[in-house]
């Protein structure tokens, strides 16, 4: 304390670059150098990889928003969220092929089937997520924070086992119905329809969510509940119902993500939720957990980082390293900027 008081203001303004700060700068410089070399060496690959990153990033955004919404309202890291996303992929396969008989080359009828599948998956995952909250988290509302966290890990395992029992231990394929033809092709960079479709469906969903949270009565109730539950209750807000609603929305977003991802990547496996959940969670933390635009920004950045890592030619670590890199990013943010890129230090948070 005494050191704080006596430290001259100059010291605060011109902070001597610490060893860690220097290392960080060097690292960022090396990263930029690496990207530029790749861009120069193989510009068309760079462009392709960039587009893949954006596409994955928009799916991650949908998942990351679920983490951030739930964290915002309960300060709970819902470890089961990635697995709900995985379930959505399985629902997508079941609904689209078994209910609607979707397969490749059906022409325009594909469109309503995909939309119906999307809506059903959103509905199913929204309901499941709300049910998870009701059964697994609500009874622990007054318990120490660790209790719901451990429960969330348990729920994650349970959902994985359900997925395992439902579709087996191997990859199951989803119908490859998004057209692979190009939207445009310039300088060797191909932008195919299947990538664009993912982004085109994601954007209105994101806008709808933002509108919901910012403008509607339910959204106001969500924001108030996130900031102070008792105060929200005495305003006349049904706090439990608002929390249920938040889980419903988060689950629906995971449902949308699961449908898009499974139809784009065309494979689903019971343990897929773990890795993608980790990536999306990191995205949420990177953007500032609890911050909606932050989750989208973080997701796009993580999507790009992953794509560059897995797709670039010149000295890229490759997909074996993706999890390590994502985890390293998570640790670095938690250590050096826990409020994330867009998160603000709130007065009550200190």
């Amino acid at each position: 304390m005494a050191a704080d008081v006596s430290a001259p203001t100059l010291g605060a303004r011109f902070k001597r670059p610490s060893v860690i700060g220097l290392l960080g700068l060097l690292f960022v410089a090396a990263l930029v150098f690496w990207l530029i070399v790749n861009l120069i060496k193989t510009p068309s690959d760079f462009g392709d990889v960039f587009l893949i990153g954006i596409t994955n990033g928009s799916v991650y955004a949908l998942i990351a928003l679920g983490y951030t919404l739930v964290y915002g309202i309960l300060e709970l890291i819902n470890f089961a969220h990635g697995d709900v996303f995985m379930l959505a992929g399985m629902f997508t396969i079941t609904f689209s092929t078994h209910f609607f008989g979707l397969h490749q080359g059906q022409g325009w009828v594909t469109v309503p089937i995909v939309f119906a599948t999307l809506l059903l998956a959103m509905l199913a995952c929204g309901s499941i997520n709300a049910a998870i909250e009701f059964v697994a988290y609500r009874p622990l509302r007054g318990a120490p924070r660790l209790a719901p966290l451990i429960t969330a890990i348990g729920v994650s395992f349970i959902i994985q086992d359900i997925g395992l029992a439902w579709k087996g231990p191997n990859y199951v394929t989803a119908p490859d119905v998004f057209p692979h033809s190009n939207v445009f092709s310039a300088g060797g960079v191909d932008y195919s329809w299947n990538k664009l479709i993912v982004v085109l469906v994601t954007i209105p969903v994101l806008l709808a969510l933002l509108w919901l949270v910012q403008e509607t009565r339910q959204g106001k109730a969500m924001r108030a509940t996130a900031q102070d539950k008792d105060a929200a209750a005495i305003m006349g807000i049904n706090v439990n119902r608002t929390i249920s609603f938040t889980f419903l929305i988060a689950g629906a977003l995971a449902g949308a993500a699961g449908t898009l991802y499974s139809l784009w990547a065309t494979t689903v496996r019971f343990d897929q939720g773990f890795q993608l959940g980790l990536i999306a969670f990191t995205a949420a933390v990177l953007g500032g957990i609890g911050n909606l635009p932050g989750a989208v920004l973080g997701a796009v950045l993580i999507g790009l980082i992953q794509a560059f890592n897995e797709g670039l030619n010149w000295h890229a670590p490759g997909s074996d390293w993706t999890q390590s890199i994502v985890f390293s990013i998570l640790i670095l943010i938690l250590v050096f900027r826990p409020e994330g890129l867009l998160g603000e230090k709130t007065p009550e948070g200190g």
């Binding site: 924001r223 900031q227 102070d228 008792d230 105060a231 005495i234 709130t346 007065p347």
Partner: peptide, 12 residues
């Protein structure tokens, strides 16, 4: 009620 500690919604 105006509760103890005011309990406003700080980010609103």
């Amino acid at each position: 009620q105006s509760p103890e500690g005011r309990r406003l919604f700080p980010r609103m």
